[in-house]
Structures are given as structure tokens and as C-alpha cells.
């Protein structure tokens, strides 16, 4: 078992024939993901990476039965791509693109929600169900199959966490990179109950960072609703106030959104919070040996 995606998920790629789309789609195909086609307006009818190319998402969905879309279009076209996917009945859009304007995502997410489409990202590594389905840009070999669910705002820190979990002798069910932008799709609060309900997931790792209050919301949610052990690390304990740390959303504004307040809230909710990012694997081992 896993959450959201598995070996049967049918995936199309929006921005299929571009440089990024091509490279990562072929990596996903190598991993075993069922990439059933792609969309590049104007290139409909062609074949790319051995898969059909369509002009519109609607055509792609009608002819392939895809339910998931992986989006690689340039930042200025992200909102358009997301809304097109939502309109065509896609159930989950995984938005990899970095640099989409906040205003665009505000409209795109509202429309996706109205149409019942889930979104992941933008500005994220994607989602991977270990040894079944990779929809994103993460190195697949780092994610061995196991019993730990992973939710993270950061790309390389997700790989780091999975690597540590694997080194301790465990593995991953599904890992979701939720992205570090101010407005994102699925977040801790929506993903935690999915992992809670997944029989194969026995522990959950959540990686957060400074800025916003999603981790605080997660803490409140965990307290009431999550019985599985949760390990958390919050990046940016040493970040200065008012400075944007790489991710558009990673900023302590008006003194709120600090790592300290998030760590405290999570601890109060019974989460095993690690101070050092090198201790994530060890903490997973600890909670799973109890």
C-alpha cells in the first residue's frame, strides 16, 4: 500500500517535450512509472519517448485514461496548466516548476479545489511511492520500500531523510515533497490522515521549515487525529528574521513562522522533534522500536 499514487497510476506530463520534461519523464519511465503520454500544445499527434503527445489535456485524458499529471511548464504558464488539468478531470496534479507567481497559484488552487483536483507543489520534487511510481525529479534509488511515510517542504532534505531512514534499515512507503512556496497544494494536514489510514505506513517523518504556519496546523491536527509515531525536523533554526532563505515561502515575517515556535508546537503534540538534521534516521529507529 501507499498513498495517492502506485504502480497502476496513469500519468501524463504537461510540458512533455521541453528539456526538463523530457529528461525527468524518461527517468520516471525508467523507474517504472506508467507515463501514458504528454501534452505540448502544437505538437499533438507526434510521439515522444515512445508515448503519444496531445495538444490538450482533455484529449490526453480521453485517449489514455490518465488521472495524474506531472507539470513542467515554465513558471508563467503554471496556473494555466493547472486549471486545464482540473478542467479535464485530472485527479492529482504534481507541479514541479519553480518560480510561479503567488497570485497565479492563488487562482489556480482555488479552481483546482472547486473541481475536486488535488495538487502537490509547486516548486517541489514531486511524489514517489517507493519501487512503484515516481512522479517528480527525485533520485529514485534513494527511496527503498519500507514502512515510513515522508512529507517534506524541501527537496534535497527529503533525499537526506530517506537516505538516513534506509541506512537505519527501514524504508519508505510514499514520500511527498510539498514545496516551499507561500501557497502550496496538499500539505501536512491533508497528507497525515492518508498515512494514518495506510496500513503499510508505521511511522511518519515530516520536514518543515521557517515561514507560514502549516507545521503549527499539523501539530494541532496530530494531537487529535494521528496515532502513528511522527518524527519532525524544522529547518532554519539559525535563519535570521525577515530574510528569504531560498524558498519563496521560507521567511520569518513579523517575528512569526520561526523554527522554535514550530518545534515547540510539534513537541507539545507528542511529535519526536529532532534538533539536528543528522538525527532523523535515528529518531525513526527509536520510535519504531518502541
Amino acid at each position: 500500500m501507499s498513498i495517492l499514487v502506485n504502480k497502476d497510476s496513469k500519468v501524463i506530463v504537461q510540458g512533455f517535450t521541453g528539456k526538463e520534461g523530457t529528461f525527468h519523464a524518461s527517468q520516471c519511465i525508467d523507474y517504472g512509472t506508467q507515463i501514458v503520454g504528454g501534452v505540448t500544445p502544437g505538437k499533438g499527434g507526434q510521439e515522444h519517448l515512445g508515448k503519444p503527445v496531445f495538444n490538450t489535456v482533455e484529449e490526453a485524458v480521453n485517449s489514455t485514461g490518465a488521472t495524474v499529471s506531472m507539470i513542467f511548464v515554465p513558471p508563467a504558464f503554471v496556473a494555466d496548466a493547472v486549471m486545464e488539468a482540473a478542467d479535464a478531470g485530472i485527479e492529482l496534479a504534481v507541479i514541479i516548476t519553480e518560480g510561479a507567481p503567488v497570485k497565479d497559484m492563488m487562482y489556480a488552487k482555488m479552481y483546482a479545489t472547486k473541481k475536486g483536483m488535488k495538487t502537490i507543489g509547486p516548486n517541489c520534487p514531486g511524489i514517489i511511492t517507493a519501487e512503484e511510481c515516481k512522479i517528480g525529479i527525485m533520485p529514485g534509488n534513494i527511496f527503498k520500500k519500507g514502512n515510513v511515510g515522508l512529507i517534506s517542504k524541501s527537496g534535497t532534505l527529503t533525499y537526506e531523510a530517506s537516505h538516513q531512514v534506509v541506512q537505519e534499515g527501514f524504508g519508505i512507503t510514499t514520500a511527498v515533497g510539498i514545496g516551499g512556496d507561500p501557497i502550496i497544494g496538499l500539505s501536512y494536514k491533508q497528507l497525515l490522515p492518508m498515512f494514518e489510514a495506510d496500513p503499510e505506513t508505521e511511522a511518519i517523518v515530516m520536514i518543515g521549515e521557517i515561514g507560514g504556519d502549516l507545521e503549527i496546523q499539523a501539530a494541532e491536527f496530530i494531537k487529535e487525529n494521528i496515532s502513528k509515531p511522527v518524527v519532525a525536523f524544522i529547518a532554519g533554526q539559525t535563519a535570521p528574521k525577515g530574510k528569504r532563505m531560498g524558498h519563496a515561502g521560507a521567511i520569518i515575517s513579523g517575528g512569526s513562522g520561526t523554527a522554535a515556535e514550530k518545534m515547540e508546537a510539534l513537541e507539545k503534540a507528542g511529535v519526536k522533534v529532532v534538533v539536528s538534521p543528522a538525527d532523523i534516521g535515528k529518531a525513526v529507529k527509536e520510535v519504531l522500536s518502541k
Binding site: 524541501s154 537526506e160 532554519g236
Partner: peptide
């Protein structure tokens, strides 16, 4: 993406989250 801080240990990292985590572990 660079932000100057006050310490003496320089950091070069790939990824924003891991960059912040690296600063944190240096402090730790």
C-alpha cells in the same frame, strides 16, 4: 541563492532546505 550571516563557517549546499539544515547542524 546567498544570504550573509555573522558566523565564521562558510556553507555551500544544494537545495534550500538542506542549506538551512546545514546552518542548523553547524550551530548544533
Amino acid at each position: 541563492s546567498y544570504v550573509k550571516l555573522d558566523g565564521n563557517v562558510g556553507c555551500m549546499v544544494n537545495g534550500a532546505g538542506l542549506s538551512m539544515a546545514t546552518m542548523d547542524i553547524i550551530k548544533h
